[in-house]
Design a binder for these strands. Sequence first.
DNA 1: CGGCTCCTTGCACGTATGTTCAATCCGATT
DNA 2: AATCGGATTGAACATACGTGCAAGGAGCCG
Lengths: 324, 324
Amino acid sequence: MTYATDPVQSDRSRDALTAAHLYYLQDLTMEAIAQELHTSRSSVSRLLSHARETGLVNIQIKSPLDAPSHLEQQIEARFQVTAHVVPVPDSASDVDRLERVALSVARILGQYFDSNMTMGIAWGSTMNAISRHVTPKQTHNSQVVQLNGAGNMRTTGLGYASEILGRFGTAFGAHVQQFPVPAFFDDPATKQALWRERSISRLIDMQATMDIALFGLGSPFSGVISRVYAGGYLEQAEFDALSTAGVVGDVATVFYRADGSTDGITLNERSTGPDFTVLRRTPRRICVVAGRSKLASLRGALAARLITDLFVDESTARALVEAP
Amino acid sequence: MTYATDPVQSDRSRDALTAAHLYYLQDLTMEAIAQELHTSRSSVSRLLSHARETGLVNIQIKSPLDAPSHLEQQIEARFQVTAHVVPVPDSASDVDRLERVALSVARILGQYFDSNMTMGIAWGSTMNAISRHVTPKQTHNSQVVQLNGAGNMRTTGLGYASEILGRFGTAFGAHVQQFPVPAFFDDPATKQALWRERSISRLIDMQATMDIALFGLGSPFSGVISRVYAGGYLEQAEFDALSTAGVVGDVATVFYRADGSTDGITLNERSTGPDFTVLRRTPRRICVVAGRSKLASLRGALAARLITDLFVDESTARALVEAP
DNA sequence: CGGCTCCTTGCACGTATGTTCAATCCGATT
DNA sequence: AATCGGATTGAACATACGTGCAAGGAGCCG
């Protein structure tokens, strides 16, 4: 092996690969694998972890297509979205709920994203949780593009959002396209102007032609406050305006009402997220929701037809299919 | 759940599915899953086994495409086939070797076979070993068709071959097409006649249009005697004739020489396996080889261009790429 | 209704696996 | 050459897991 392909991790990865072969395809015990590889059992355990973490081993669960759960069928019938209900015990806390849904999504994501694709991603606590667990999958010529700005009066937002972006990017070996603008402009005219800049319009174009959008939901007026409202992005006056306008939630800092409408919500004109008419052209729009506090927001997003694929925890799913 | 889809195993499979979710997608411990499912940890362990065995959980190893092993690259370069080298320690016995290669193939097979496809399969010790381990995968409207007859002077062969066929069939939920003829006719004319029968020609047509062929190799003149030669299929005189004709192996009881040629091997006119010119039209032709005793036979099969995908144990692979 | 078998369950045990820790190796820096 | 920090290793320990077994059910005859 004097001319290995990747001098750095080639050895380790090659061992991990054979170990995975022996373990998952031939049912050998780690002890036995250790002997074949002339190393200790602990090292084999570590090799296998490594293999799983780097996406060398791919474990997927396949609903034998005939059997989406009862809940999933109901959701699909009523809202025309593909539903994935994540089993979570009713007793779980909201943080648990988020963590577990995020973990599931992170593991499945690779089945949707592939080479030559562009994925738009939002930011926020949901996206953050997912990003911390994405299972890597090597792709070529693919892009990860930020959907909305993350700056505010305190920071440029480049740290937080780009950390999330970056994790997706490295997991998929994709180019990362950051969106270096605030979440909301002070003056709509600035947005208009900037949108005409070639550097920015390039990004807007990518968003318009992306293959997948991945986002959580904001829910301004319910128990757990989304990052957008806690992080100093909005002033009290703006917040109140949303309230009087009847807003129930947002996707990438673009707001909507319970019936999915957005007309007359002036804040949207200053927001940097993609307009819903644009977003709706994206073939696959994956929405991740955890916790019943986001129920109203979810109903709105469904009404707005923003979602094609929904990941949701079990009890929220149950609540969703109960009377309006 | 009053109107479950499959009343029989619906409950068990549904539990197995959630258990798999919780275990593989959320990294819960079996103990924790047991609590959520209100059962004992042992039952969860069994549920998960069930999930794996029934193909509900799909574990696959992905060469990060850039890194096929050195050996695999060499084989691909020299013989224009996709190679899968199965790691097996050099110290392993030939039965071990076969068993381990077969296990690997059985686990991977589902990645090649899908709905609306037809797979032709041979019989013999290799195929038998594979059949005993195939991981199920549900498909629709797919067919498994026997490539060559299995009858001989002692039995109709329906038992042994159909057992193998059956295992593939049930694993994939495919229709099984048996081939109720002897391995070799006594008189070539009988074969010609029978081939014109509609019941048989229907089968021949299916073979001609199959999407995948799966077969092992026979090697008449080397250490381990293949089933064809041990099972009473050939008389001593026929065996000698093969020897003088320079035969080194067979695929589905059709024989070839070291250079891949078949002309003038009269036994082939009485054989029931598919003619190589027909076989070569099959888009994917998967050959499984274990043990260096099949090396000559493998070289011949490669020369005859019978193989598009090769599964082979490591040490045989090494021997293959060494001088002619 | 009883007795029969076959299947499923939870317990208990032994084995397999994950993880911590101290020792060691390696490469970089001085 | 010497020293340092970080990464890797195997031993030991603590868990987690698979499986034989006896007990309990569910169906099926007699």
